[in-house]
C-alpha cells in the first residue's frame, strides 16, 4: 500500500512538472479596471494583508512550526493558482485557487498574505493578472476565498458535518466565492449605465459551466489533503476539528 501511495505521489509530481503552462482564469488582467475602482480594491485589501502579516508574526512566536506551514501552503497556493485544468465538455481551462484549504491550515489572515505574494509574482513574471488590478485579485482570491472557506468549514463542523464533508464544502464554496467576487468586481466597475446586478449575474452565469466542476474537484482534493494532515499531524489543525477557531 505504501508503494502504491509513493507511485501515486510521484505520478502527480511528474504530471505537474511536465505540463507547466500558463493558466488564465479569475485573474483580472492589466488595465481592465478603471483607476478609481482599482484603487478602491487596493484600499480594501491592504488592511487584510497588514493584519495577516501581524497574524503570521504572532503565531510564529507561539508555534514554531507556523513558518514552515505558511511556506508550504504559500508554495502550494502559488502552484495551484497557476495550474490550468481543462474542462473537457467545454473546451476551456480554468484553475483552482487553493485558498479554502489554505485558510483551514493557516487561518484566513495568513492566507491573504500568501495569496497576495502568489498574485504579485504571477503579475510580475508570469503575465498573469496585473499590477493595477492586484488589489482586486487579492480581494477575490485572497480575502473572499480565504474567509468563505474558513467560515464554511467552521459552520459545517459546528452543525455536525464530518471532517471530510466540511473540508469539501470549504474548498467548493471558497472557489465559487472567489469567482463570484471577481464577477462582482467586474460588474461594479464596468456596468456603465446598465444595472450592475444584471451584469453580475451575466458574468456569474458565464463562469458557471467551468467553475462548477472545478469547484467540486477543488473541494475533493482539499478534503483529501485535510484527511492526510489529520491522520499524520492533527495538531496542525488545532481547535478547528471541534468547530472552534484555531
Amino acid at each position: 500500500m505504501r508503494g502504491s501511495r509513493k507511485a501515486l505521489l510521484i505520478l502527480l509530481g511528474v504530471a505537474v512538472a511536465l505540463f507547466p503552462s500558463p493558466a488564465y482564469a479569475m485573474h483580472i488582467s492589466e488595465s481592465i479596471l478603471p483607476g478609481p475602482w482599482a484603487g478602491l480594491w487596493f484600499a480594501v485589501s491592504l488592511p487584510f494583508v497588514l493584519w495577516g502579516l501581524r497574524d503570521i508574526q504572532q503565531r510564529s512566536r507561539e508555534k514554531p512550526y507556523t513558518k514552515a506551514l505558511v511556506g508550504l501552503v504559500g508554495a502550494a497556493v502559488f502552484i495551484v493558482s497557476c495550474m490550468p485544468i481543462p474542462v473537457p465538455w467545454l473546451g476551456t481551462c480554468s484553475h483552482p485557487c487553493g485558498t479554502g484549504l489554505a485558510a483551514i491550515l493557516i487561518g484566513p489572515w495568513a492566507t491573504v498574505v500568501v495569496a497576495s505574494i502568489a498574485l504579485l509574482l504571477q503579475a510580475l513574471f508570469l503575465a498573469h493578472g496585473g499590477l493595477s488590478t492586484l488589489g482586486a485579485n487579492i480581494c477575490s482570491m485572497g480575502v473572499a476565498g480565504a474567509f468563505i472557506g474558513y467560515g464554511v468549514f467552521l459552520v459545517a463542523r459546528r452543525v455536525g458535518a464530518s471532517f471530510f464533508v466540511a473540508a469539501f464544502l470549504a474548498g467548493l464554496l471558497s472557489d465559487w466565492g472567489t469567482y463570484a467576487t471577481t464577477s462582482f468586481e467586474l460588474a461594479s466597475a464596468l456596468c456603465g449605465d446598465n444595472s450592475p446586478w444584471q451584469m453580475f449575474l451575466t458574468i456569474l452565469v458565464a463562469f458557471a459551466p467551468t467553475q462548477i466542476p472545478l469547484g467540486v474537484a477543488e473541494g475533493a482534493v482539499g478534503a483529501m489533503a485535510c484527511l492526510f494532515i489529520h491522520s499524520r499531524r492533527p495538531e496542525l489543525l488545532g481547535n478547528l476539528m471541534e468547530g472552534k477557531r484555531a
Binding site: Y24, G91, T92, C93, S94, A206, T210
Partner: peptide, 9 residues
C-alpha cells in the same frame, strides 16, 4: 482550451 479570463473576463 482558452482560460475563462479570455472567454469571460
Amino acid at each position: 482550451w482558452e482560460g475563462v479570463d479570455k472567454t469571460v473576463i
